[in-house]
């Protein structure tokens, strides 16, 4: 594991928000390295700064202090075009609320990032069908999001996130709006994908089901990393939690 390639590096990241007249410090100096191909969960109660850190890694928000590097490129230095490129090719986003585009069918949702990437329409459709097949929704390609269940919508969203073969998939509470068993299916699907395709998966969550799938878990509390645990250390902790 020592020679692993670092895909995301977060150094000394602080983030302040203005809430009315008071400054709130959501992150108080976070250092984190994420390796290519790992499944990392960021855990923490709401208000812990978990989502803020997550947004920083995804290039959706800029740190007040400190740096975020993706593939050793400081993302604060990127212009609008390069950021769009990064979001288009390098990162796939999965949201708690699925965020499929309502006016488009499942297939069109999946092909959209490929269209942005300049892929020819026929090639995009072929790959879109293939991805739908991968997430087990082959027959539903022509359905609009309203016609799909939550779990199915999240599957489409996963397929969409994979469209341009990104190196990183960012999933913000991917199971937050799903029932227990559907959530488990989604976690399993993401886990399989990370193993098969070598995609780095980073999730922000407070779903303990996520723990078993994760290679590492980062616990955030009050704007700081409390601890980072590997999977082998985890099972004991899960036991503790269930006992507590």
């Amino acid at each position: 594991m020592a020679d692993q390639h670092t895909i995301v590096r977060v150094t000394g990241v602080k983030r302040n928000f203005k809430l009315g007249s008071t400054d709130v410090q959501a992150l108080k100096g976070v250092d984190l390295e994420i390796f290519a191909g790992e499944y990392l969960s960021i855990m923490g109660p709401s208000g812990s700064g978990k989502s803020t850190l997550f947004n920083m890694i995804g290039g959706l928000d800029k740190p007040t202090e400190g740096k975020v590097y993706i593939d050793e490129v400081d993302i604060a230095q990127l212009d609008a075009f390069e950021l769009a490129w990064l979001r288009n090719r390098k990162i796939g986003y999965i949201f708690q609320t699925f965020n499929l585009i309502q006016v488009m069918t499942a297939l069109e949702n999946i092909t959209l990032p490929m269209i942005f990437a300049g892929v020819h329409n026929d090639a995009a459709v072929a790959k879109g069908i293939e991805l739908l097949d991968l997430v087990g929704l082959h027959k539903r390609y022509n359905h609009k999001p309203q016609e799909l269940s939550g779990g199915q919508q999240q599957r489409v969203a996963i397929a969409r996130a994979l469209a341009n073969d990104p190196a990183i998939i960012l999933a913000d509470e991917p199971t937050g709006n799903l029932d227990l068993s559907t959530g488990e299916e989604i976690i399993k699907l993401m886990n399989d994908l990370s193993k098969e395709r070598g995609v780095t998966i980073i999730t922000a969550t407070h779903d303990y089901k996520m723990l078993n799938a994760s290679d590492r878990v980062v616990w955030i509390e009050d704007g700081l990393i409390k601890k980072i645990e590997h999977r082998d250390q985890l099972n004991i902790d899960v036991g503790c939690i269930s006992m507590a």
Binding site: A84, Y93, N99, I101
Partner: peptide, 14 residues
């Protein structure tokens, strides 16, 4: 708002 934000996450330019 969400639709536009999603498109931007997928790589849409302004």
């Amino acid at each position: 708002f969400r639709e536009i934000g999603t498109m931007k996450c997928l790589g849409a330019l302004d």
